[in-house]
Amino acid sequence: MRHSTGLCVLFVVVGAILGGLLGNLLSNVDALSGFMPYLTESYPVFDMAPVTVNLYVIKLTVGLAFMPNFMSILGIVLALFLFRRY
């Protein structure tokens, strides 16, 4: 069975989002307060400043930032593992 690139990208994006959300939820647990700040600290990898285009009818503002934390990277690794097993 052949896997598509779009499905792999979907797995990676969902894994990153779920990993980041899980890290955010676990950051409030008192038992994990000692090392959770290291797992939830974001590291800027790619940051494109917002660009605004005014077309006098529509005003578009576009920007992109990729700032993963360790938990989202774990989510990406788990998503890739699940994708390979799928």
Score class of each variant (00 low, 15 high):
residue 26 L to C: 01
residue 26 L to Q: 00
residue 26 L to H: 00
residue 27 S to Q: 12
residue 27 S to M: 09
residue 29 V to A: 13
residue 29 V to N: 10
residue 30 D to G: 00
residue 31 A to D: 12
residue 31 A to H: 13
residue 33 S to H: 11
residue 33 S to K: 09
residue 33 S to R: 12
residue 34 G to K: 07
residue 35 F to Y: 14
residue 35 F to I: 12
residue 36 M to R: 00
residue 37 P to K: 05
residue 37 P to D: 03
residue 37 P to V: 03
residue 37 P to N: 05
residue 38 Y to V: 04
residue 38 Y to M: 06
residue 38 Y to I: 07
residue 39 L to G: 00
residue 39 L to C: 07
residue 41 E to D: 09
residue 42 S to T: 14
residue 42 S to H: 14
residue 42 S to N: 12
residue 42 S to E: 06
residue 43 Y to L: 13
residue 43 Y to W: 09
residue 44 P to N: 11
residue 45 V to L: 14
residue 45 V to G: 07
residue 46 F to A: 14
residue 47 D to Q: 15
residue 48 M to Q: 12
residue 49 A to D: 13
residue 49 A to M: 08
residue 52 T to Q: 10
residue 52 T to D: 05
residue 53 V to K: 00
residue 53 V to D: 00
residue 53 V to H: 03
residue 54 N to G: 03
residue 54 N to F: 07
residue 55 L to T: 05
residue 55 L to I: 06
residue 55 L to D: 01
residue 56 Y to H: 13
residue 56 Y to C: 08
residue 56 Y to Q: 12
residue 56 Y to E: 14
residue 57 V to I: 10
residue 57 V to F: 11
residue 57 V to P: 02
residue 57 V to L: 10
residue 58 I to R: 04
residue 59 K to M: 10
residue 59 K to F: 08
residue 59 K to V: 15
residue 60 L to F: 15
residue 60 L to T: 12
residue 60 L to K: 09
residue 61 T to P: 00
residue 62 V to N: 02
